[in-house]
């Protein structure tokens, strides 16, 4: 029934010291559509590909606001993400209540990582089946973190998670050194180019399937953004300007990047599932 003797539950180490159930949970993250995060000196942004189950259905929610200074994008089980993001909101509110300060982002990510660790060690639980990209801002500037069901959290210059995220990662690794000095517009364009790499052959980014989350001062055409640039999620018509700014793939200065991107494994089909 099982692939091996040591993968039936999360309280068993394999003879190599591996935790198969945790590794399978990481696979659950890859079942979700991709999300990309990157940052400059002034901004941190998230981009995500939304799925829809059909013509009559709306598109899924891939981003959540935690506080003015924190936002997340998810890949994997949406219900698990809702539990964790609810917890993050409580932590953020508690910090504002007790100390009247925005919760330090690294501590917030650490807190959910510590929660996730418990689910890898006790019988009768399963590891969370969702990964986060978390962007946040504090006195040391914008930050980007990845949270994974293994209970790890790392800070990155740029990162992507979800289905075919390796292709986006390849793009990001090629360009991340230039991100630091990017304007918001350029940063979003890089993000969209990276996100585009995760698409299936015949698909493209449009105003329905693309979400953009921004932390930092407003873009030139943006209106109604508070002074410091609180976290906001752009959907629908609001992402059009950014989509229009994209350079078509054939003529883009990065065709090499697209070609170099690891071809998506065949098993990695665009499975229609929550998340």
């Amino acid at each position: 029934m099982f692939r091996n003797t040591y993968d039936s539950d999360n309280t068993v180490f394999s003879p190599q010291g591996r935790l198969h159930q945790v590794e399978y949970a990481l696979e659950a993250v890859k079942q979700g559509s991709a999300a990309v995060g990157l940052r400059s000196k002034t901004h941190a942004i998230l981009l995500a590909l939304k799925r829809s189950t059909g013509e009559l259905a709306s598109y899924q929610q891939k981003m959540f606001r935690i506080d003015d200074h924190v936002g997340i994008a998810i890949a994997g089980l949406t219900s698990d993400a809702r539990v964790l993001s609810n917890f993050m909101r409580q932590q953020a509110m508690s910090s504002r209540m007790i100390f009247n300060r925005p919760v330090p982002v690294n501590r917030l990510v650490g807190a959910i990582a510590d929660k996730a660790q418990v689910n890898t060690q006790e019988y009768g639980r399963r590891p969370y089946g969702v990964g986060f990209l978390v962007i946040g801002q504090d006195q040391s500037g914008p930050h980007l973190y990845e949270f994974s069901p293994a209970g790890n959290s790392y800070e990155y210059y740029a990162m992507s998670i979800g289905a075919r995220s390796q292709s986006a990662k390849t793009y990001l690794e090629k360009h991340y050194k230039t991100f630091d000095d990017c304007s918001l517009e350029d940063l979003v364009r890089h993000g969209l180019h990276a996100l585009r790499e995760t698409l299936q052959q015949d698909k493209e980014l449009n105003i329905n399937n693309t979400s953009i989350g921004i932390l930092g001062p407003a873009a030139t055409h943006e209106t109604g953004v508070s002074g410091v640039g609180a976290f906001r999620i752009l959907d629908g018509e609001k992402v059009k300007v950014f989509l229009d700014s994209m350079v078509p793939k054939e003529t883009a200065d990065a065709p090499a990047a697209a070609a170099a991107a690891a071809p998506a494994p065949a098993a990695d089909e665009d499975v229609q599932m929550e998340g």
Binding site: I98, F99, N100, R101, P104, N106, R107, D138, Q139, S140
Partner: peptide, 16 residues
């Protein structure tokens, strides 16, 4: 122990 450069200032301590 958090050792992350986020220090509590007088305003935060007073609020606490």
């Amino acid at each position: 122990a958090a050792a992350d450069g986020h220090a509590l200032g007088p305003a935060e301590i007073h609020n606490y």
